[in-house]
Design a protein around this nucleic acid. Structure first.
Lengths: 215, 215
DNA sequence: TAGATTGTTAATCGATTAACAATC
DNA sequence: TAGATTGTTAATCGATTAACAATC
């Protein structure tokens, strides 16, 4: 139901943030908010708020502002958080375990239905209510179950082989924690990267340059 | 030694990616590369490569290209990865543990020197060679040791109190995994956020909209 | 020298901000 | 009605891309 068919990534990446702030306002039992006030809280401009929201339709009421609960729900729908995309986790190391245990998938549009590891010792262990399977069961599992997405929490050196297998099994969507460029190999894959090292290097740069005394 | 004093965040956030690709080329024993070839590998334009690198100085050689090892080292220096910023981890839950165990801090300009948790049961356990201390030892610790950065891996509800304490102890740099807006409270803090939920919501949106059949 | 490729300026593109008429 | 605030168009700003003279 979007007004225009192309929404820029800049806008899309701001949506979860709107959703977060609106959820907070909702918890605080605040009914309505103007673009000006919302912008203040979020430390952006009111213009941007209105411009962003109007990519998807006129959710506001002139002279009144926006209904918090309505707007929150609209954004929830736009993001598609009511979905139930079936996800499998590849790699049950520290990071994979943390991802499986820490995230509230059902509130984010996903359901984690299986976890795979190449390490025999991990097979059979449990992450929440998901038991870890051996990687050689992957093919069979994907044929028996619809799998929409793979969460990649394996070392960089293992990614290429694993990616080829997953892609050949029809998986096109990836939440990627590995330092590997999935889109360079499969340009039609939908990929969100979490590059923790990149992020920390950026912090390092910024710390360096925040200490600068202007001569 | 930068040519201009203001480097845009767009450029800064690309630096770790350059560093990653150059490190790979270096491992492959490739000596030199042109902006055109590097751009191809990284799936960006040659103009952008040259424009980005020239923010920091002329590292290239006309008619030749760039020396891989030199350029890699230059970017390493620009990012400041030779630093040894002292970091403490707040929160040793699943996520905190994964962060402590998974990251190669010394290659990223940091050293993890302590971890704190509010849970008595975790106190005394070990993450790699760091032992977990109780949060009430935090103040004393910060007075005895230089602490440059805090890695925040605690639930959203705990962040505000903890942040006030850390800030009052002089910590201005944060790697933030919590859904809390640190800069809204302390505008001079240097913050890099890792918002896993936001990232997964974005993936959800994109999966939704990649399935669209154009009518 | 001729060929290759940079550094840098100019042109284009897209995103953000400002302004204001429409309207509740 | 008057006041408030949106939706939307126009102006500005910044980032990306193209072009090319400089030079190895």
């Amino acid at each position: 139901m979007s007004k225009s068919d192309h929404i820029s990534m800049s806008v899309i990446r701001r949506l979860p943030r709107y959703y977060r702030f609106l959820s907070e306002l909702y918890e605080q039992k605040i009914d309505r908010i103007s673009s000006t006030k919302l912008a203040q809280i979020m430390n952006i401009t009111a213009s941007q708020v209105r411009q962003d929201l109007n990519c998807f339709g006129g959710f506001g009421h002139q002279g009144y502002g926006y209904s918090v609960s309505q707007l929150k729900d609209e954004i929830k729908n736009i993001l598609g958080l009511n979905n139930d995309y079936k996800a499998i986790l590849i790699g049950s190391g520290n990071l994979g375990k943390a991802v499986a245990m820490h995230m509230n998938f059902e509130k984010l549009g996903f359901e984690l239905i299986a976890c795979f590891d190449s390490n025999e010792e991990k097979v059979g262990t449990k992450l929440n209510n998901i038991s870890v399977k051996h990687e050689n069961e992957l093919e069979e599992f994907c044929r028996q179950n619809r799998v929409d997405t793979a969460f990649l929490c394996i070392p960089r050196v293992c990614v290429e082989n694993m990616l080829d297998k997953l892609y050949s099994l029809g998986i096109k969507n990836y939440w990627n924690f590995s330092h590997y460029d999935i889109n360079a190999r499969y340009s039609d894959a939908v990929v969100e990267n979490v590059h923790l090292s990149d992020n920390l290097m950026t912090l390092c740069y910024r710390i360096n340059n925040s200490n600068q005394t202007n001569i």
